[in-house]
Nucleic acid binder design. Sequence first.
DNA 1: GCTTTCATGCGAACC
DNA 2: GCATGAAAGC
Length: 615
Amino acid sequence: MELSEQQRAAVEHTGSALVVAGAGSGKTRALTAKIAHLIDKGYPPERILAITFTNKAADEMKRRLMALTGLEMARFPWVRTYHSACYQILRRHARLLGFAEPIQIYTVYHQQKLISEILIAFNIDKKYLHAIRAAISNAKNSGSPAAYFDTCKRIGPFRLEDIYDRYESALFEKNAVDFDNILMLTRNLLRDHADIRDKYRSYFSYILVDEYQDSNDLQEELTRLLLGNGNLFCVGDDWQAIYGFRGSNVNHFLNFNDNFENAKIFRMERNFRSADEIVSTANQLIRHNRHRMDKACFSNKTGGGIEIGEFFSDAEEAEWVVDQMIRLNRQGIGFDRMGILYRTKFCSLPFEQALRSAGIPYRMLGDRGFFERKEILDINCYLAAAVFEKDDASFERIINTPKRGIGPKMIENLNRCRIEGGGLQGGVRRAVAEKILKPKIHGALVTLLSLVDDIADMKPDQAIRTIVDRIDYYDHLHAYSKTEGDYTARRENIEQLIFAASKYENLLEYIEDAALIREDKADEASEEAAVGGASLSTIHASKGLEYHVVFVVGCEENLLPHWKSMESEEELQEERRLMYVAMTRAEKFLFLSSAAYRKGQYNPRSRFIEEISAA
DNA sequence: GCTTTCATGCGAACC
DNA sequence: GCATGAAAGC
């Protein structure tokens, strides 16, 4: 593999290292080369733990490693996200932690259902659901919930700790973990059991972490617990740290040298992606951040261009963007090589409209996750109910999907039939066995239960086909969908799901993976659906991507920087890094634009534009 | 009369 | 996609 001098130095270094990898500097390439190099040196690939930020990145890395080393995919079992790796560890020690096997992973849907129930029990307004869910998540990711609740005691008039305790015990009772618990319980396991910790420490001969700037405190602790005295190789770019709002702590990156004494720091400063005009302008912006590592990013490519547009309204701004797109398209640049980036997703509307009326195809990234779509949730809840009898959230969803005449009141009645420690499904089974229900309801439930029982032993794809067939799901979808196109898309999603599921041997395996994959929002389904179009996305969702032409729109005060992130210098710096990420997505042409009037508000042009034009 | 279903309006930050 | 209230069904 061809490597630059800076890349090679990092790859061939023995011992712990931090690679400060500028935007477009070939970060993944270096990381992959490093692993290949280690294998070359005799490290068994099975014992290399390589942490990626998303599952997609893990797959990509494994693909590259296969090509590079000629080894099979299965030889890299520990190229994973933190969550996926920790779950592998956690499941092996389930009993020690008081869980039965298998543990169920609660995704957002299940989590929200559970918290909703608790809110009802505490008589708390539903409007707090999101804030409470976020607080619980942040508490866990801080590594120390108790300490977190000392600083953030309540949301509205409610004591967070009480809600948290109730939530945790409910999860445990259902033999389930949420996404954050996968990390926190693994941390507890490794922290509290020296024998297990030592086992993993001696097993992993090398630990590599990608996107290290976005690690949170809990992940950092996990890395240390697994590391022991072994070698650590971290890669990232503090200038692109944009997840502080959800607990990422860039200080682990900035203080790497203090934390790992004999570690060496490497810099990869050459940008292979963007033209130098763009790189140096982005540098100019990021210089306004005080809290950052020094790095001299440059590019040997020239001929790029930056243009700044200022408009009265977002509609005029959108019109200008579309004009530029058409102009560049006439020069032979495909629309699929153009991206429109904005701070918040509500900004997308005028651009969607302008693109549509100009007849330019487009796709929206970072849309709702595949696994959070109605039709996918419906099917997955059937599967989950077949495997996890205590999974009330799933059973409650499927009990009346499609409509069987079983509403909230009937569910309440059925809940009263529960047996101690059992779930709603158990209650239904009892009610059916004792024949205490009206014939119509009884019949509907018998049909449902026999379906659930029948699919339990099937292979996942066969199980899905059976569900779709026996509940006439496509009819249900057709009635539910607002347009014919909507119906087709949903139907295709199901077909996509069947295809994905066919790679698994049993239901449990499939369900576990589906739960862990949920984090990837830019999914294959939407990519396949509309290849060839321009991309619209939030800046967050654009991370790691690149476009020949980039439009960063909505460059206004209170939007970028966002009004919720302007109180502290820390937050403001993160907003600036966000702008930096947006700019460095561009290979050749970068357009920055603002509208004085947007969404009923007047705002001045973003300070970030002033910062780069003031030079 | 109780329960479910249907129709309508409103609002959503970043993952 | 959810909360709300009116209409339909058992």
